[in-house]
Deep mutational scan, measured.
Amino acid sequence: RIEKCYFCSGPIYPGHGMMFVRNDCKVFRFCKSKCHKNFKKKRNPRKVRWTKAFRKAAGKELTV
């Protein structure tokens, strides 16, 4: 099963990425440490230029 990165919305293939479980049992999956570090710094994915959330908000990503 291919999961989605919580921060950048990129695909996470089986055996890859990192799973972060908070004390309230909420699960966050990250494709790379870059995404996990930005999440820990409480960065907003919509303001980080390389994420899909930014591209969609800025009108750069074509949605079908």
Results as ranks from 00 to 15, higher is better:
60 K>I: 12
61 E>I: 05
40 K>T: 13
34 K>W: 03
14 P>K: 03
14 P>V: 02
28 F>R: 02
16 H>K: 07
56 K>D: 15
28 F>Q: 05
6 Y>I: 02
21 V>S: 03
6 Y>T: 11
19 M>H: 06
32 K>G: 14
30 F>I: 04
1 R>C: 13
29 R>N: 09
14 P>C: 01
29 R>G: 06
28 F>S: 03
50 W>A: 09
19 M>V: 10
24 D>A: 01
54 F>I: 11
13 Y>S: 12
48 V>F: 10
25 C>D: 13
25 C>L: 08
39 F>M: 02
33 S>H: 02
18 M>S: 08
32 K>A: 12
49 R>K: 13
18 M>C: 05
57 A>W: 07
58 A>C: 06
62 L>T: 10
20 F>I: 11
60 K>R: 10
20 F>D: 10
40 K>E: 15
49 R>N: 14
51 T>C: 10
46 R>W: 10
34 K>Q: 14
52 K>N: 12
45 P>C: 04
27 V>H: 02
21 V>W: 04
26 K>C: 04
29 R>K: 08
36 H>L: 09
37 K>L: 07
35 C>Q: 00
61 E>Q: 02
6 Y>C: 12
54 F>S: 14
54 F>E: 15
57 A>G: 10
41 K>I: 02
46 R>V: 13
30 F>S: 01
47 K>P: 14
52 K>W: 11
36 H>C: 09
30 F>N: 00
17 G>C: 03
34 K>T: 12
2 I>K: 02
27 V>D: 05
24 D>F: 00
10 G>D: 09
36 H>A: 10
16 H>W: 04
53 A>S: 06
55 R>S: 15
56 K>F: 10
24 D>Q: 00
37 K>G: 05
45 P>D: 11
25 C>V: 05
64 V>C: 08
25 C>G: 11
43 R>I: 11
21 V>T: 07
41 K>C: 05
39 F>T: 02
36 H>R: 02
2 I>Q: 09
34 K>M: 06
64 V>L: 08
35 C>K: 00
51 T>I: 04
36 H>F: 06
20 F>T: 12
23 N>A: 09
15 G>F: 01
59 G>F: 08
45 P>V: 04
16 H>Y: 09
24 D>S: 00
14 P>Y: 02
30 F>Q: 03
14 P>L: 03
44 N>R: 02
